[in-house]
Design a protein around this nucleic acid. Structure first.
Length: 267
DNA sequence: AGGGTAACCCGGACGC
DNA sequence: TGCGTCCGGGTTACCC
């Protein structure tokens, strides 16, 4: 499933389709899919509301209605699909929004990992997120100082969405390899030069992910081709693209972690 | 503050 | 073929 780049792509793709008003909402598997509010109140609250805009913050899609917003997190198995004409729910559809122009927006999520919030206070969900790595405020200087304001291993810190928003497990491994940094290196030991390398690597990896429409690492999602260009992720035992040493896999904070033991040295 | 761990979820991969 | 087990993605909760 895609991480951040795909979310951006989907938002862009959906936007022209999401016109008109929500005329009816059908809820499926409600308790697992939507955090708030209760189902009985839901249709009443959003029925007739116009979709004003679709945007993105970190890994969250934001569908702005007149007086509420949907916050949608696809996690790894979630998908948003626009269907046309007379339809009935398909397997793994968790939520269907019926729109006044005849389109239907389906939230389909095989593994029920996705989450949707309907809220008039998006900040309660989005408020604690760190900066966007592709926006102006994310500079080498900021990164250096942020790394030194904490005392953590690099990988768990990069995965922390309150530190920096948008990197998932795959892209973190790719970034660290490109920057030649070990996932367990202490954040406060990174030099100015290394922070600049990491900054450059984060942007390069995310941009390439976007360009290739994300990675199809699971049968659930088959869109992007970035998996064909992984440097280390899911390449245990295969040669490092830089030096040829076999890629090693181990666990960091419960996450599968891939490095080149030659390029990414600890200390 | 940082880390470690469990939980959520389920289809696919793997071993027998 | 069938069954059991493990896996993994992102996030939160909770404990030390």
């Amino acid at each position: 499933m895609p991480e951040l780049p795909e979310v951006e792509t989907i938002a862009r793709t959906l936007k022209p389709n999401l016109v008109g008003r929500i005329i009816l909402s059908a809820d499926l598997h409600w308790a697992r899919t939507l955090a708030t509010p209760a189902p009985a109140q839901f249709t009443k609250r959003i029925s007739g509301q116009k979709i004003l805009d679709v945007s993105r913050r970190a890994k969250y899609l934001i569908v702005i209605l007149e007086s509420y917003s949907f916050l949608i997190h696809l996690r790894m198995s979630g998908d948003l699909i626009v269907r046309t004409g007379k339809i009935k729910p398909e397997k793994h559809d968790r939520l269907l929004l019926h729109l006044s122009d005849g389109n239907h927006l389906a939230f389909n999520d095989t593994r029920k990992f996705g989450r949707i919030w309907l809220t008039d206070q998006p900040e309660t969900v989005l408020g604690k997120l760190g900066p966007e790595p592709l926006e102006k405020g994310f500079t080498p200087r900021w990164l250096f100082e942020a790394l030194h304001s904490r005392k953590r291993s690099l990988k768990p810190l990069l995965l922390d969405q309150t530190f920096l928003a948008g990197l998932g497990n795959i892209y973190t491994d790719e970034c660290l390899h490109l920057a030649r940094l070990h996932p367990l290196a202490a954040s406060n030991n990174v030099s100015v030069e290394q922070a600049a390398e990491l900054h450059k690597a984060i942007r390069a990896v995310l941009r390439e992910g976007i360009r290739r429409n994300g990675a199809s690492i699971d049968w659930v999602y088959r869109g992007g081709g970035y998996q064909n260009y992984f440097r280390v992720y899911d390449r245990e035992g295969k040669p490092c693209p830089v030096c040829g040493a076999p890629i090693q896999k181990f666990t960091v904070g419960q996450r599968g972690t891939h490095i080149c033991p030659n390029c990414q040295r600890l200390r």
